[in-house]
């Protein structure tokens, strides 16, 4: 019997698997198609203080080995989330919920964090969405600003606080340190990689927002490298994501230093991915003689 429990910065997870924010709605959409008992947490779609309409259509383009999207964080505001979404989720799903939060200012981040304290089980701060000008990305592209926004959220909440970092930086280390210094409990990486798709017939960008974020199979090795770099720079637990399409991909993340993993784009073609990753992970631990998935974290032989 393999012990699959992990502690992600204070969040107790029965399995080390969650869902990447933005790929799993507000948690109940996949009932019937996903085995929720294999999830240690559900990470919900991004929430801010007030409702947000998102970007114009088209919002996505399929590419070889992945998907480029610029949804633009369309979402219900925190009030509706607290009053309607979370109660509905609790009624239907018995798995902890990580709320993903974002804002247009430091004050907004702190406000939404405060309002979710006592409501959800952990917070993931999005400081790295490539698709919304005012929100997210700007906070994740300067370690000083990152420190300020994470510090403000830290003061606003007692919940386990995970910060989701951008992949498109020369070195991840200053960002890891900025989060550590600001009191973050865990890190998650990676967010999507900024990307663009052009229709050569019309000579127009395929996505209305012109650019978007690349996710899916193709980004996995880049994500493994960033998880490895981050793990070498900090003792903070890491939630790793980016192109998990089979158990092997998740195991690579653990070996590179992850404490937990999130499946994302793969769910769109294969909602069974959650179970496949869980089963494959347990089988790997049995085969390699690891009693606990926690023993896999950073077990890279290099």
């Amino acid at each position: 019997m393999i012990d699959t429990k992990v502690n992600l910065g204070g969040l107790e997870m029965a399995t080390p698997i969650t869902t990447a924010s933005g790929t799993f709605g507000y948690g109940t959409e996949y009932i019937g198609a996903v085995d929720y008992s294999k999830l240690g947490a559900v990470t919900a779609k991004g929430i801010r203080v007030s409702p947000w309409p998102g970007n114009p259509m088209p919002r996505h383009a399929e590419v070889y080995g992945g998907l480029v999207n610029a949804i633009g964080l369309q979402g219900t505001g925190v009030e509706h989330f607290v009053d309607v979404t979370v109660p509905w989720y609790r009624q239907n799903v018995k798995v902890p919920m990580i709320a993903n939060i974002w804002g247009g200012s430091i004050e907004e981040y702190a406000e939404v964090a405060a309002k979710l304290t006592g409501v959800v089980d952990a917070l993931e701060m999005n400081v790295s969405c490539p698709n919304v000008k005012a929100g997210g990305h700007t906070f994740g592209q300067d370690p000083k600003v990152l420190n300020e926004v994470v510090s403000a959220v830290r003061k606003a909440t007692t919940l386990p606080l995970i910060v989701k970092l951008a992949p498109n930086v020369p070195s991840i280390v200053p960002y890891v340190k900025a989060c550590e210094d600001a009191g973050a409990d865990a890190l998650s990486l990676i967010n999507t990689i900024p990307a663009m798709v052009i229709d050569i017939e019309t000579r127009k960008p395929v996505i209305a927002n012109k650019t978007g974020g690349l996710s899916g199979r193709g980004i996995h090795p880049a994500a493994v490298k960033l998880v490895y770099d981050a793990h070498n720079a900090t003792k903070l637990p890491i939630l790793a994501m980016g192109g998990i399409y089979e158990a092997k991909d998740a195991i690579e993340f653990f070996l590179a230093g992850a404490t937990a993993v999130a499946v994302g784009t793969a769910t769109f073609t294969n909602p069974g991915i959650v179970s496949e990753v869980y089963d494959g992970l347990v089988a790997y631990c049995e085969r390699k003689g690891f009693a606990s998935v926690r023993d896999l974290t950073g077990a890279l032989d290099a």
Binding site: G25, K45, Q74
Partner: peptide, 15 residues
């Protein structure tokens, strides 16, 4: 009918 991603209301691509 729109190009769709998840098909279940999770991703907000088919607006």
């Amino acid at each position: 009918d729109r190009h769709m991603v998840c098909g279940v209301g999770a991703c907000y691509a088919c607006i």
